[in-house]
Design a protein around this nucleic acid. Structure first.
Lengths: 231, 231
DNA sequence: CCGATTTTGTTAACCCGTTCACAAGCTCGT
DNA sequence: ACGAGCTTGTGAACGGGTTAACAAAATCGG
């Protein structure tokens, strides 16, 4: 994994564990599939398989939200979708701003499936004059200088950084100054932000390097692993 | 976090913990920055700050590779880069194939920074006739049917799935059949693969949903959290 | 109405990862 | 040559997350 959290440790409160929160969207997707198949109820076993997790883990995760299942029966698909969606804040639509209209920014703007998840790309910003004014999946690219105005206009709390690594910290500083409190960072850089701001990082290159490590091991002397696996 | 591993539990052996492996590329990037700044040595504290982690954690991570530091002095930047790079398999270049030449596939093909990390996009495949034959950052899009030939030709072990969710499982099956053993999955789908294959999943929508959850909590009654934070 | 069967919710053990704290070891000044 | 001062490497405590196992609760057949 390549997700660095730079936020408060949280805990205390009645908060849901981070690991669980990260899986809730997966459950939501699996439930959407089941609903599309016409299923109205499902057991923890079925849902766990669709989500690719252990059934016990699934039940424990869901138990943090409350008791929305029926013993001996299972979960009502629609009810569970509602409760997970509500917990994730999908009762409202979150407007986000994407900074950087390069290849990745374009890909993100065009990404379908945001809409159904309560996410709306409200604006795309860039500093390159050649990009400003162009249309990205129905959203016009605006100058980066418009940041504060855009944040104000849409009441934006979540931003996506899709710039080159060198520009990322400067952009992050501007985002924080404009009042953004959650940042999804695709740039290959470690962002320094106040504790009050949540940062998640996705680095495409890092993901591939991790896979290369596994290949590396596979290729050379992992013989012991095959014999020694305990459980 | 949104990284699902669908591989063997591993352990035993002299393997490096997964959490550490995921951070090694980050350290590598931080070391590259230090080197670019002309630094020839650095302490664990400096490197930890550049990488955004706890110094103790950094030292423990590095200790899995061996003792490449000098007490009282620190680490030699060049030496450490060499050893981390070697551990990650960067002594060779890994040819990867990208399946799906849509927005995301295009973005990945154009992503700079792969080259310097031992990753090379050898081929891009798609089923859409309109895309086949087009040029993506110097690589020609080939028909998906060429998969086996491409894997054979380049000796490919690592593949990237950048297709719509519906197509992902079929693509994964074909990849496995062709001999690919590591898959980076960007499609919003849970891939079922044999235990011998490593899968990492990155879902852009999920990342944003996790951030929305944090915003949701921030907005409503997290008062207790501010008072109760312990560490 | 009751026992058999199913499936949830939860407790407790386990395992992995993080962090602290300190001994081991290196350098430098004297 | 030796002590003062750093910085690494690691043993041990701690905390969170995963998993197994079971009790509680619902349905269904007779």
């Amino acid at each position: 994994m390549t997700l660095l959290r730079t936020s408060r440790p949280a805990r205390a409160d009645r908060g849901i564990p981070d690991a669980t929160v990260a899986r809730l969207p997966v459950y939501l997707g699996a439930l959407a599939e089941l609903a599309a198949d016409g299923r109205s109820t499902c057991s923890s076993g079925e849902l766990a398989e669709a989500a690719g997790v252990n059934p016990a883990k699934l039940r424990k995760d869901l138990s943090y939200l409350g008791s929305y299942g029926t013993r001996g029966v299972g979960y009502d698909v629609a009810v569970l979708r509602h409760h997970i969606g509500r917990e994730l804040g999908q009762t409202q639509t979150w407007d986000v701003v994407i900074v950087g209209a390069g290849h990745l920014g374009s890909a993100l703007s065009a990404y379908h499936g945001f809409d159904s998840r309560g996410i709306n790309v409200a604006a795309v910003l860039d500093t390159d004059p050649a990009r400003i004014g162009t249309d990205l999946a129905g959203v016009e690219v605006r100058p980066f200088a418009d940041l504060e105005a855009v944040v104000e206009e849409f009441g934006i709390a979540i931003a996506v950084v899709a710039t080159p690594g060198e520009a990322a910290q400067g952009v992050a500083d501007a985002l924080v100054a404009a009042g953004v409190t959650s940042i999804l960072n695709f740039a290959p850089a470690v962002l320094q932000v106040p504790e009050t701001v949540t940062v998640r990082k996705v680095d495409l290159s890092i993901e591939l390097q991790v896979l290369a490590y596994h290949e590396q091991r596979r290729a050379s002397g992992h013989e012991a692993a095959d014999e020694e696996v305990a459980g």
